[in-house]
Design a protein around this nucleic acid. Structure first.
Lengths: 230, 230
DNA sequence: TTCGTCCTCATTGTATGCAATTTCGAACCG
DNA sequence: CGGTTCGAAATTGCATACAATGAGGACGAA
C-alpha cells in the first residue's frame, strides 16, 4: 500500500516510531485532526504503513506531551482546546518568556546575528503577495526558541515548548490583522536591539509586550467564533 | 501465562504498563537507581513480571518526563543530575511558585483548612524521635501542589511537577539542617496566613523566601560532597 | 605490542497473535 | 412505545517471535 503517507514514504530516515510520532504530531498541530477526534491505532498503522507497536509508542509520547488524551481501554483522542486554555497558556508565557528574555540579555549568550536574520526573513515573508504564514510561523518559533536557549536555562526551553506547541498557539499568525503582524515583527527587531544593548529590563519589557499583544489578538479572534468552515 | 505479577502482589490495581511505570519511577525518585545506570528492558520485565511491551511504554513515558534518557538502538539510562540542574530547577521554581502562590491568594480557591492541616501534620512528623522524612516529603509535596492548583492555572501545576520531580529535589528534607527545617515549616504556616488574608504580594514573597531558602540549603549540601553514605 | 577487521552475542525495534475490555445494536420485557 | 439486557464486533492491552542494530572480543598483520 504505502499510499497515504506520501511525504514520509521512501526513506527510512528515522525509525518507524519516530516517523509515526512526527506524522501524527504534524497532523494535530496543523489542525488536520480536530479536537476530540479519536485516533485508532489500527487506522494510523495502516495509513502510515507500520504496525501498531510504533503507533502505540508515538501515541504514548504525544499523551505525555499533552497533545492527546489517553483513556485506558478506550483509546486516544486529540485534546480539545478552548479559550480557557488560551488564557492559561498565555498567562504562563507572559511570565516565562519575558523572564527568559531578560536572562538572555544578561548572559549575552544570544547569537545576535542569527536573531537579526530571523527577524529580517520574517519581514520578507510578510511582504510577499500572499504572506507564507507557515514560513513565518517556523521562523518565529525558531526566534523565540533561540532566545530562551540563550537564557542559559535548558529546562525553560522545554517547558515553554510543551506549553506553546498546541494548534491554538502554533498557528498564531493566521489570526493576525496586518497591523498586529507589523507590530509583532517590529517587536522582534526591538528585542534584538535590547539584547544587543545588554539591557535585561528593556528586553524583558519588550518581550512582555510582544507576548501580551499576541494574547490579545488571539483572544479577540477566539471570542468571535466567526472563523471559516472546517 | 505465569503473569501473576508476583512481586507487586496484592491488587492488580492498574494495568501492567501503569504498574511498571510507577515501579520504575519510584525507584528513580528514591535514588534506588543511580544516575547514568542503564535500564534494560529485559531485566525490568523479568523483575516486575511482565513482558517487554509494557516496560517499553513505561520507559517512553519516563523519557518524555525527563527522568530517563533514551538513546536510540542503545537503550535507556537514568538521567544524571548535578548542581547545574539544581540551579536550573530552583531558578525556575522561584519564578513560578511565588507567582502561582500570589495568584492563589487572588483567586481564593485555596482550601485553607486543608492547607493548615497539612502544615500542622508536617510539624507533628518533624517532632517525632526520628522525623519521618518520607512522610514530611509527601505532605510537603501535597501542600505545594494544592497551592498551585488554587492558582486556577492547571498547566502551572503540571509544569512545576515535571521540574521538581527529580531525585535531587524530591528528597529535599533529607538535606535540611534542623534550623532550616524549622524555618521551612514556619513558612508553610505563614503562607496559609497570607492566603487567608488574600494578600497576593505577601503570599508571593513568603513563597519566594521559602523556595530560595530551600535552594540555598540544597546548594550548600551539594557543593560539599561530604554527605554520609548513600 | 598495537591497530584493524570480522565475528558473535546482547539488546533494542518491529510485527503479529491472542486475551480482555468496551461499544453498539437488536431482541426482549414492562 | 420506552427501557433494559444480552451478544457480536471492534478496539485496546499484553505477550511472544523475529529482524536490525550496536558492543565487545578474538584473531591476524604490520
Amino acid at each position: 500500500m504505502t499510499q497515504g503517507a506520501g511525504s514520509e514514504a521512501g526513506t527510512d530516515a528515522g525509525k518507524a516510531a519516530e516517523v509515526t510520532y512526527l506524522a501524527i504530531r504534524r497532523q494535530i498541530l496543523s489542525g488536520e485532526r480536530a479536537g476530540g477526534e479519536w485516533l485508532r491505532e489500527g487506522d494510523l498503522a495502516a495509513v502510515i504503513g507500520v504496525s501498531r507497536t510504533p503507533v502505540r509508542e508515538a501515541l504514548r509520547r504525544l499523551a505525555a506531551e499533552g497533545l492527546v488524551r489517553h483513556e485506558p481501554n478506550r483509546g486516544v483522542q486529540v485534546e480539545a482546546w478552548g479559550v480557557d486554555d488560551l488564557d492559561e497558556i498565555f498567562s504562563l508565557r507572559s511570565q516565562l518568556e519575558p523572564w527568559g528574555c531578560g536572562l538572555a540579555a544578561s548572559t549575552g549568550l544570544a547569537d545576535l546575528e542569527a536573531l537579526a536574520e530571523l527577524a529580517d526573513r520574517m519581514d520578507e515573508e510578510a511582504r510577499r503577495a500572499p504572506p507564507d504564514l507557515d514560513a513565518i510561523t517556523e521562523l518565529n518559533n525558531r526566534f523565540h526558541r533561540a532566545i530562551l536557549e540563550a537564557s542559559g536555562n535548558g529546562r525553560l526551553v522545554g517547558l515553554v515548548s510543551t506549553v506553546v506547541e498546541v494548534p491554538l498557539v502554533w498557528r498564531t499568525f493566521s489570526h493576525y490583522s496586518s497591523e498586529a503582524m507589523r507590530r509583532s515583527l517590529a517587536h522582534h527587531h526591538e528585542i534584538v536591539q535590547a539584547l544587543r544593548a545588554g539591557d535585561p529590563e528593556w528586553a524583558e519589557s519588550v518581550m512582555r509586550s510582544h507576548v501580551r499583544a499576541a494574547w490579545a489578538s488571539l483572544r479577540e479572534e477566539h471570542l468571535d467564533p466567526e472563523q471559516g468552515p472546517s
